[in-house]
Amino acid sequence: MIGGVHDVQMPGGAQAQAIVGLWHWLLPICVLVFVAVMIALGLALWRAPRASNDTAPDIASLSKREPKVTRVVIVAVAVSTLLLLVLLAVSVMTDRALAQLPLENALHIELTGYQWWWEARYDDPDPSRMFTTANELHVPVGRPVIVTLVGADVIHSFWVPSLAGKKDLIPGRDTTVSFRADRAGVYRGQCAEFCGYQHAKMALFVIADAPDDYARWADRQRAPAAEPSSDEARRGRDLFLARSCAMCHAINGTSAQARHAPDLTHVASRMTLGAGALENTSSNREAWILDPQQFKPGTNMPPQNIAPQDLAALSAYLASLQ
């Protein structure tokens, strides 16, 4: 299952909730104005007499004023201005509400956007408790999260509609976004700033867990990769380290420490492959390794020429990276 909630009108946290509150002002006022203008236009058409090309023009208005109509138009403009002021006030209030999200005891994450995947580093005052994962954030329900956004190559944009509005990841200018998930669940997000070839397949999943579940998940993420238990998985690990895999990917607890592609220390625990391109199953992992271009044309990972029994061993190893 690679779904997840991604709807502006289905908020799962405080920030998105505040914006829905604003939407509930914007929508009725705008609908009201639209209907009023259409009724006025309809009435104007209905009541005005019909004419033809030859009807003599009525030029009286050039020489005399039309006070009645003028009054109506002035009132209409005044009412429009008043409504705009109301909307401006509500907008400013919402802005303040967003800025006033309580941030005590916040979880700090540094999220880096690459073409076309996300790297997340969970910060901790104790460096040994920091860990790195990719394309998937787990956050505890009810605890605020401050995400520092780093653009590594081109501009990307962080957008998880059910949790918070957008924030761009701009090379050379770090930005931050803060949000709080108030309901447990899977929230889908996607890069929202056009970032090149595979902009379409750059999803980000935010999984809001109960605080205890989150703590367990974080502890597991901090641990290095488990020592493979079967011979086949061990052979898979050796293949991983001997082949080109280790030139881009990192697996903690092994000598693979490259940072050009998603960290695979706990790859089997994630929902998707290729930033939402594929569901993360054993067979999909094998198909992805053989030819990632088939699922995400343009991705930086090249196709692998690998014998079937080697692929099976590699797959067994990756499956063990829970």
Binding site: V37, A40, L43, A44, L45, A48, P49, S80, T81, L84
Partner: peptide, 30 residues
């Protein structure tokens, strides 16, 4: 934000003036 809302006012003025012109005119619906 304030400017983006303000620019609606001159457009509103024009829309009301057009409706007023139609309201007080004789219409040749071509």
């Amino acid at each position: 934000t304030a400017m983006s809302l303000t620019i609606a006012i001159p457009t509103a003025v024009q829309i009301f003036c057009w409706i007023a012109t139609l309201w007080t005119g004789r219409i040749n619906l071509r």
